[in-house]
């Protein structure tokens, strides 16, 4: 798609805002609509747009595949690790009340951390899946018009 000037310029303008919006949805999810699942998907959509417009190789240069693959597992580990942490601090598995002095604060902290894990895994999995599909056929960015 390298000859589509309008698409390149507009997506260059849009991508930072998509990523920023993804982060907003992630960290504001406690107060407004949003959360890990939505944020992960939006964040991944930003990267996928970049890969579609500028080609897969450029996208892979920005976020090397091994880091994303690590992210896939890391998100799940953060989620499960939060459960283990609350277990070690004397509560039940995934009972966040013990993570801080007051139960509601602990709950809030736990939800925050867990949502981050969810977002990380979802975003990484979506990018990995897209790279896997696009990597099969390197002409994808030429054909897709």
């Amino acid at each position: 798609m390298s000859h589509h000037l309008v698409v390149r310029v507009v997506s260059k303008l849009l991508i930072p805002f998509i990523l920023l919006f993804g982060l907003y949805v992630q960290f504001h999810g406690d107060f407004g609509p949003g959360g890990g699942f939505q944020a992960g998907v939006i964040f991944a959509a930003g990267f996928i747009l970049y890969a579609l417009v500028y080609g897969l190789d450029n996208a892979k240069r920005i976020i090397p595949e091994k880091y994303i693959r690590a992210g896939v597992a890391l998100g799940l580990l953060i989620f499960a690790g939060t459960g283990v942490a609350s277990l070690l601090m004397g509560g039940n598995y995934l009972d966040y009340s013990v993570l801080a002095e007051e139960a509601p604060k602990g709950q809030h902290l736990g939800i925050f951390v867990v949502e981050f894990g969810v977002g990380l895994t979802v975003a990484s999995v979506m990018i990995v899946i897209f790279f896997a599909f696009a990597g099969r056929d390197h002409q994808i960015d030429e054909k897709e018009e």
Binding site: P33, G34, Q107, I111, V114
Partner: peptide, 13 residues
């Protein structure tokens, strides 16, 4: 949970 968004609270906690 001191989280105003019920969907998030139920989902994560």
């Amino acid at each position: 949970t001191s989280v105003p968004n019920m969907v998030t609270a139920v989902l994560a906690s």
